[in-house]
Amino acid sequence: MTGPAIVATGVTRTYELDGVSVPALRGVSLTVADGDYLAVVGTSGSGKSTLMHLLGGLDRPTGGTLVIGGRDVTSLSAPELARLRNEVIGFVFQSFHLLPRTTARDNVALPLVYRGVGRRERRARAAALLERVGLGHRIDHRPNQLSGGEQQRVAIARALVTGPSVLLADEPTGNLDSATGEAVLSLLESLHADGVAIVLVTHDSEVAARAHRRIVMRDGLIVDPAPTPGGDR
């Protein structure tokens, strides 16, 4: 890919709630380069999740410009944005978000359904990724038959199955005990070693310290590193 994976410039996001404006992001500029490993920390309500949704093309900014995979999000239609999410981004959520009653393999294969990949190839690729995250023996298990750490590894395999350039993880270890969380983290780091850019939201300063860069958010702004006027970071 040419240029950085994601470029946000002066991005704002204001929620309208019963006629009241809630500014969740108040002007965030951020570049996620290929192969980045970035931790996002900050107090609760500082806008971390909001930022992640924007970076992943799940939401649109109220103001500023946001370029994902070389395309300006504001100019994209809903289906085009969906395609961008499918091709460029992989999401990992705190609460896993696996489909119930669906096997690990079919959960992992889900993004490929929307890319029009045939069933046989989907199943093969999903199986290979489950192998990669160490769940080769759990292929036909359903989420309720898996531990939390295993479920999160299935979710990571699902995020990777389309070969995205950026993996966005919003508190991926938040629902896991420290040992399991550690396993998930080292999995993420091995992916980073393979060249996937990782953006990780965390409350844990030790986890944040392992990232190559760290940004701190407060009240919808990046406060560390301190913003340089008009600058990019």
């Binding site: 799940l58 809903a78 289906p79 969906a82 395609r83 999401f91 889900l110 929307y114 890319r115 699902r158």
Partner: peptide, 15 residues
């Protein structure tokens, strides 16, 4: 939630 997840991984509104 299932709909949200499907959209997150690339489902279009018409899908």
């Amino acid at each position: 939630r299932e709909i949200g997840l499907r959209k997150a991984v690339g489902a279009r509104p018409r899908d």
